[in-house]
């Protein structure tokens, strides 16, 4: 919408959504763009669905948006849920091996959805499926799933590598910067080779 790009980050409270959003916002800033971000903190952080929105462009007015151009989903069920947020031809970058099973499914009152590729295709959404857990583990900590996924998403976002560098450095505490830089790079490499065309 008039030069503003919306990226939504979804996942489960405790997964580091807010931190990933902060990296993204700092990166867009480093590109010299106007940025607005919004999220709802509080109760949902206790294991509930969490949504954070980052918007950037020449001049961003509203801090929220009903539809996103890109959704970064750090959990599979939340990726399914986020399909509703995506505009047609939007992109979903999803950590497809990360499953945090909600209580009703644990008790078998509900079923965990399967076949995200089909659901995404049905909505005309481009899916970038990432095994972010494996990448994070390879980088050195499972906690870096969020940043590994961000690395994967960086392929579809219009920012220079140097800006990402600055974004990571600005948003992350120095003691976890290095491991996250590794996770980010692994995420970026995992995608660029295969999934995204020219």
């Amino acid at each position: 919408m008039n030069g503003t790009t919306t990226v939504s980050l979804v996942g489960v409270g405790g997964q580091g959504i807010l931190l990933a959003a902060a990296v993204l916002a700092e990166t867009a800033s480093a590109e010299g763009l106007d940025v607005k971000a919004s999220e709802v903190k509080g109760m949902s952080q206790r294991g509930g669905s969490v949504l954070s929105t980052v918007r950037f462009g020449e001049h961003v007015w509203s801090p929220v948006a009903r539809h996103a151009d890109v959704v970064i989903a750090i959990e599979l069920l939340e990726g399914h849920r986020a399909l509703g947020l995506l505009a047609h031809q939007g992109t979903l970058v999803c950590a497809v091996t990360t499953r945090i099973v909600p209580g009703s499914v644990l008790r078998r009152e509900d079923e965990y959805p399967d076949d995200l590729p089909a659901a995404a295709a049905a909505r005309g959404v481009k899916l970038i499926a990432v095994d972010a857990e494996a990448l994070a583990r390879e980088a050195g900590t499972l906690r870096a799933v969020n940043v590994a996924l961000l690395g994967a998403a960086s392929v579809v976002l219009p920012f220079a590598a140097a800006s990402w560098q600055r974004g990571l450095a600005a948003a992350l505490p120095s003691k976890i910067l290095e491991v996250n830089e590794r996770a980010f790079a692994l995420g970026r490499d995992a995608v660029s080779s295969e999934e995204v065309g020219p």
Partner: peptide
């Protein structure tokens, strides 16, 4: 979202 299990916050 239709057909998807809800994820209310829970005690840790």
């Amino acid at each position: 979202a239709a057909g998807l299990p809800v994820r209310p916050p829970v005690l840790c």
